[in-house]
């Protein structure tokens, strides 16, 4: 009798201990998840807080002024915002078709045994630290741009009406075009790996029906694969755009770091991230405040771009789930 009672109380205390341990563990992991949630809000708020000085002094004019004069404490965000957008757009104009080609190659064209090694090699591009892209850009790409590309662009595209102005500039090699090109190589692995993954989700049935009707490989890709995965492909492009907007070190070396508006892609310019990286550590208080506010702008823009990317990617996986 007594032994049963003892066992019973021991079981009860054991159960109680387990329950409390379970509760503690649960609190612990909930707390960790909460930190993840809060850190995103913290990131945005801390920069807005740091930029309050410039924001209250210059108000919304900050976002629409092209003047950038740290000596007189006049700051306008338009030039770095412009540079960020231009370099990212150049990057996407190169990276999107190339990534699409790579994804098609890896899912439709290449012999099966070659797909994994080539795919992994392309993904290795994403692993190379961004500062090494920057050094490569500065020491290898910039001299090549100076010697061959810039003179060629000047001669051939510089004389064209309307777009000619974009391609007129001194042969110094650094500038928005070079920065955009380095960025494009950096975002190719991200965009192509998303495209490749979603291309693989297209039901084989669909593709084979098209082949059976006599479609060529290209027609299958263009008329079957791409429409089926459209939203996710756009998501992948936006993911690449988010990367390109915030990329820092690779751009900082080759963009020229000049806060001045110019119509030519061959002239030096700057981007938000490059400007912050170059000037923040040595900046005075009010200059720091301006850079923090710029950081806030960058964060808000990338937030929305990445949010759109995620929603687009979710759409496809939800459809997958329904099936």
């Amino acid at each position: 009798m007594t032994s049963i009672a003892v066992t019973h109380t021991r079981l009860v205390t054991q159960a109680r201990r387990d329950a409390s341990a379970d509760r503690k563990f649960r609190t612990l992991v909930v707390l960790a998840a909460f930190i993840v949630l809060v850190s995103l809000i913290g990131v945005a708020f801390s920069m807005l807080w740091g930029g309050r000085e410039v924001l209250s002094e210059q108000g919304l004019g900050f976002f629409f002024s092209t003047e950038w004069n740290p000596v007189e404490n006049r700051y306008g965000a338009l030039v770095p915002i412009f540079g960020t957008l231009v370099t990212s757009v150049i990057a996407l104009m190169i990276a999107v078709p190339v990534s699409f080609g790579i994804a098609v190659y890896l899912t439709e064209v290449a012999p099966v045994w070659l797909r994994t090694p080539v795919g992994s090699a392309i993904e290795l591009l994403a692993g190379i630290p961004s500062i090494i892209y920057g050094m490569w850009g500065l020491f290898v790409l910039v001299p090549m741009m100076t010697a061959y590309v810039t003179p060629w662009l000047n001669d051939h595209l510089g004389a064209l009406p309307f777009i000619g102005e974009l391609f007129q500039g001194p042969p110094i090699g650094i500038g928005l075009l070079t920065a955009g090109f380095v960025l494009s190589i950096m975002v190719i692995p991200f965009i192509s790996s998303v495209m490749r993954e979603v291309f693989l989700t297209v039901p084989v049935r669909l593709k084979e029906s098209a082949y059976a009707l006599g479609a060529t490989r290209w027609e299958v890709v263009w008329n079957i694969v791409l429409p089926y995965t459209r939203s996710a492909v756009i998501g992948g492009v936006f993911l690449g755009l988010g990367r390109a907007l915030g990329e820092t070190m690779a751009v900082a070396y080759v963009v020229g770091n000049t806060v001045r508006f110019s119509a030519s892609l061959l002239e030096p310019g700057t981007t938000i991230a490059a400007l912050i990286a170059n000037d923040f550590a040595e900046a005075t208080d009010s200059y720091r405040s301006a850079l923090l506010l710029l950081g806030f702008v960058l964060f808000v823009v990338t937030f929305f771009i990445l949010a759109i990317a995620r929603l687009m990617l979710l759409r496809l996986s939800r459809r997958e789930g329904v099936r």
């Binding site: 850190s39 920069m47 915030g246 820092t248 991230a273 923040f280 923090l292 960058l298 990338t302 990445l306």
Partner: peptide, 18 residues
């Protein structure tokens, strides 16, 4: 997922102010 792709320089600014 957003934090995963957020620009690292922005996280640096965050830790600077924090």
């Amino acid at each position: 997922d957003i934090l995963l792709s957020a620009p690292s320089i922005v996280l640096g600014l965050f830790v600077y102010t924090l």
